[in-house]
């Protein structure tokens, strides 16, 4: 190893492997991804974000939001769940079958007392389908579900893991690397109101007590109320409200950012991220969901 050119050649060969694997190959593979079909239909996913949300992406980048917030929901696994919703007429036989299929219910007197009840919950498709066939044959109605699970999902940060298709038309992609604040990949699902985001940006502590997020007041304008208050003016609690006669109005940047945040959903069921759409219960209390938020599952989303 005494010659410069030899070292150069050696380094070139050794490093070209890494360059090929992480630059050339992904450019050809990921760089050529197209829209895919959502499960259960022919709707294409994703559609490009609406224009204001696209501008919001630029605002998100310019403020460096990705240095505190990630957009990567993880998933530890996927579970099959068979939910018995209606016992039908053959209740005795169905009850016996349920006790056999679901060992945890074997001890209860009447497993059909409170429906729906999860008869199968596990990762073996064979057992899942067998249970489904058994119950259907007995005339009961059992709903099959495919449910992703993991720490991030349990925390309400997403219904499933995020995949490359969720960010297909974003440039730059801002997956983030820190969770100083919560993950935002599905924030549009749990906080769909842009006004909430505007109030939160102006005074984070007004929406999330004890929040350490800095206030982004410079994205807003405090100005004298003209003849009538602006419809865009923020409704803030007294400690954060401007003095009487003034109102806080979001600048276009703030509006764009709020639109972008609301467009972050990443909940479409896809081949690469299978799941059944369920109208689930309200997100668990440890998310940033404002108290009293009603839980309505939106129609199958098109990341927009």
């Amino acid at each position: 190893m005494n010659r410069g050119p030899l070292i150069f050649l050696a380094a070139f060969l050794a490093l070209s492997g890494s360059w090929y694997t992480y630059v050339v190959r992904p450019s050809m593979q990921l760089g050529r991804f197209q829209q895919t079909n959502m499960l259960g239909g022919s709707t294409l996913y994703p559609t490009a974000r609406p224009g204001l949300a696209q501008q919001g992406l630029e605002v998100y980048r310019a403020q460096g939001c990705a240095y505190c917030h990630s957009q990567q929901v993880g998933q530890e696994g996927t579970r099959f769940q068979l939910l018995l919703t209606e016992a039908g007429t053959n209740t005795a036989e169905v009850a016996t079958a349920v006790k056999k299929l679901a060992p945890q219910l074997a001890g209860t007197a009447d497993p059909l007392a409170s429906l729906p009840v999860a008869v199968y919950s596990g990762e073996r498709r064979y057992d899942f389908e067998a249970a489904s066939r058994t119950l259907n044959a007995l005339g009961a109605k059992a709903v099959p579900q495919v449910v992703p699970y993991g720490a991030d999902i349990a925390r309400g940060w997403g219904k499933r893991r995020t995949i490359a298709e969720d960010f297909l038309f974003d440039s730059p992609t801002l997956p983030g690397s820190q969770r100083v604040g919560p993950d935002l990949a599905s924030v549009g699902l749990r906080l769909p109101d842009p006004r909430w985001h505007l109030r939160h940006l102006y005074a984070p502590a007004s929406e999330v007590k004890g929040s350490k997020m800095p206030p982004y007041r410079y994205l807003f304008e405090t100005r004298r109320v003209a003849r009538a208050p602006s419809p865009d003016a923020l409704q803030l609690p007294r400690e954060y409200a401007p003095p009487a006669g003034y109102e806080v109005v979001p600048t276009p940047d703030a509006l764009a950012l709020a639109a972008y945040l609301v467009s972050l959903r990443a909940d479409a069921p896809l081949f690469s991220a299978p799941m059944t759409i369920t109208s689930t219960a309200a997100p668990t209390a440890d998310t940033n969901a404002p108290a009293g938020a009603t839980a309505t599952t939106p129609a199958p989303a098109i990341n927009q």
Binding site: F33, Q145, R161
Partner: peptide
Amino acid sequence: PQVYAPYKSLSHLQSFQPPTGGPNLERGRS
């Protein structure tokens, strides 16, 4: 390119596709 963690292979991923066939009542309900 279609397989993401936690799925280990294409066949593993395929086995988790929600059962189709018949009406999608869950979709309808939502």
